[in-house]
Computed example of a mutant assay.
Amino acid sequence: MLLITCPVTRTDELVADRRIRSVANHPTHLALSVECPACGSVHVYRTGRRWESRPAAAPARPAAELARA
């Protein structure tokens, strides 16, 4: 389930996953094309960053190393 705001009616709508028409993976974001239950149109919603573009986490260090630093 997704909570979207319809740009036509300006209402918040709860949308089932089956209404997602396509997902596009862009370099900076994901774009979801969602069929709106309020107006019947397909709207595109951008989500945050791509999974692959997230920086790698620093390797964990033992607590003893942290205490000496």
Rank of each mutant, 00 (worst) to 15 (best):
A64E: 14
P37C: 07
A38C: 05
I4E: 01
M1D: 13
R21V: 09
P37V: 00
A60L: 14
P55T: 10
A16E: 15
E35L: 11
V15Q: 07
D12Y: 06
D12T: 11
V8N: 10
V23I: 14
S22G: 09
L2K: 03
T11D: 13
T11Q: 02
A58G: 11
D12E: 06
Y45P: 10
R10N: 07
R19T: 02
L2D: 01
V8P: 03
A56M: 03
A56H: 12
L14M: 13
V23R: 11
L3N: 13
R19C: 12
R61V: 15
H43D: 04
I20S: 12
S41A: 01
T11F: 00
T47W: 09
Y45F: 15
R50I: 08
P62C: 06
H26D: 11
V34F: 03
C36E: 09
R68Y: 01
V42T: 14
A31P: 03
H26L: 10
E52D: 01
V15T: 05
W51T: 12
M1P: 15
A57Q: 10
T28K: 13
A60E: 07
R46N: 10
L3K: 00
I4P: 03
A67E: 01
A63T: 07
R49D: 13
S53P: 06
H43R: 06
V23Y: 09
S41D: 12
R19Q: 12
R18P: 04
P62V: 14
C39P: 01
V44S: 15
A16W: 06
V8R: 00
I20D: 07
L14K: 04
E35Y: 02
T5A: 04
R46A: 05
D17V: 13
G48M: 05
L14C: 05
R68M: 03
L2P: 08
V23N: 06
A60P: 00
H29R: 10
T5N: 01
N25M: 07
A67L: 15
R50D: 14
H43L: 00
L3W: 07
P37N: 01
I20N: 07
E65A: 05
R21S: 02
V44W: 01
H43P: 10
H43E: 02
V44H: 06
E13W: 05
T5R: 15
R68I: 06
P55L: 14
E65N: 08
A63K: 08
L32K: 11
A69S: 15
